[in-house]
């Protein structure tokens, strides 16, 4: 029961984030939304794993949380190099 509520809430949040990712208006809004969707997906997988009793599935959420870190480091590296993104607003 509570898991249904939790799953539903996470899906609603993901859809709100997805809407922001599609609407923009700036590139940074989109990246922000993607970040949020990423965190929420980790939580969704964790909730689903505990809900269905297949706790092995938590490993996937863990992997993604770690990969997230790698992704952040990659983004940071490009920020440091300065050739990552230099325009202001798009659309």
């Amino acid at each position: 029961m509570i898991f249904t509520v939790a799953t539903f809430a996470i899906l609603v949040t993901i859809s709100l984030g997805l809407a922001r990712a599609l609407m923009g208006p700036t590139v940074y809004d989109r990246i922000l939304a993607v970040n949020m969707v990423g965190t929420k997906t980790v939580l969704l997988i964790a909730v689903f794993a505990v809900l269905s009793g297949r706790t092995n599935m938590i490993d996937i959420a863990l992997t993604y949380a770690l990969i997230n870190l790698v992704g952040v480091v990659a983004v940071l590296k490009f920020v440091e190099q300065g050739n990552f993104y230099t325009d202001g607003e798009d659309d």
Binding site: Y28, I31, L32, T39, A46, A65, N68, L69, V75
Partner: peptide, 27 residues
């Protein structure tokens, strides 16, 4: 494992947010 997920999120999320804000400001 759940607690580890929490720890990773706690370290990576502010870093990501800061990187994003920094880049936006630079641009």
């Amino acid at each position: 494992k759940l607690l580890l997920i929490f720890v990773f999120l706690f370290f990576s999320c502010p870093t990501a947010t800061h990187a994003l804000a920094d880049t936006a400001m630079l641009s």
